[in-house]
Design a protein around this nucleic acid. Structure first.
Lengths: 146, 146
DNA sequence: TACTTTGACTTTCTTTGACCTTCAAATATA
DNA sequence: TATATTTGAAGGTCAAAGAAAGTCAAAGTA
């Protein structure tokens, strides 16, 4: 919910960044302030194409920047994958690609189908390795066809 | 009963997917939560045209996606694939789908990346089997996201 | 014999709160 | 006036508790 709220804020502002107040936002969602940090740390990571900048003290703030994407970013993801990746982590990246409009929702669905643990027929460990191969192959194709 | 309940939920929602909470549903049917897993594993399998996606932890969920049976042509292809398919035959189908504007050229490229023999790491025979699994999963997704 | 049901235990992800650090403005001191 | 100190307002950290879902083997049922 908080993740979407922030993304909508950005969308509505028509900007590539937003500025929030941690306590204020925590208040809106009636949660602990540190919950905001949790959301930022798990959903607005560099991996997902966001950069956070903040300042403490009176007049403090948190700024969230949506980085402009490039093939470089996809290559970073490919690097990060290495030779093994879990389903949830792969899904995490796919959502990021969708978020940045690098892929369509149908493409996301196709990729998620391949990355789905239930369709891969081997052991957990082997599936993770196979998934890395498959996912990287698709990402490379996307980078090429950008 | 649980199987039908979920199918009716889908029907009523008029959507190609439903989202459930495992504990909640177990509560409705007064059964062990793991019973829900059992039903999902035996009744909502890939073979039967379903894909499951879930997340643990607070705010966790289980999403059940259904392949639409409406796209007869794709289903015919899926049937024809069976348990094993060569790269060239798969490419042939992909080109046909592209030719009929059922998929975009980028989708075709993504699918071809997966179907490529060079990226699959097993023996010819095993690759053909794995390719059948992967290709069918993607086709199901396309049929569903028509 | 094959299919279901159950429950104890595990894993993953989220939420919370106590305590910490930083900063700017206000106030005190030389 | 110039520097030092205090204060309150932010945001940061981390570990413990909580909330879901997953697994698996044993027991039950047809």
């Amino acid at each position: 919910m908080i993740e979407n709220f922030i993304k909508e804020m950005m969308e509505e502002a028509g900007k590539h960044y937003v500025e929030i107040q941690r306590n204020e936002l925590a208040n809106v969602f009636n949660c602990a302030p540190s919950q905001i940090n949790y959301v930022l740390e798990t959903r607005f990571t560099i991996d997902r194409g966001y950069i956070i900048e903040s300042k403490r003290g009176g007049g403090g703030y948190i700024k969230i920047y949506k980085t402009s994407i490039s093939n470089n970013w996809i290559n970073k993801i490919i690097e990060n994958i290495g030779d093994s990746i879990s389903e949830s982590k792969a899904r995490y990246y796919v959502d990021a690609l969708l978020d940045h409009n690098i892929i369509t929702s149908r493409e996301a669905a196709i990729i998620k189908a391949i990355v789905n643990d239930k369709i891969l027929p081997f052991s957990q460990e082997d599936n993770n390795m196979l998934r890395a191969i498959l996912f990287k192959a698709m990402l490379m194709e996307i980078a090429r066809n950008k």
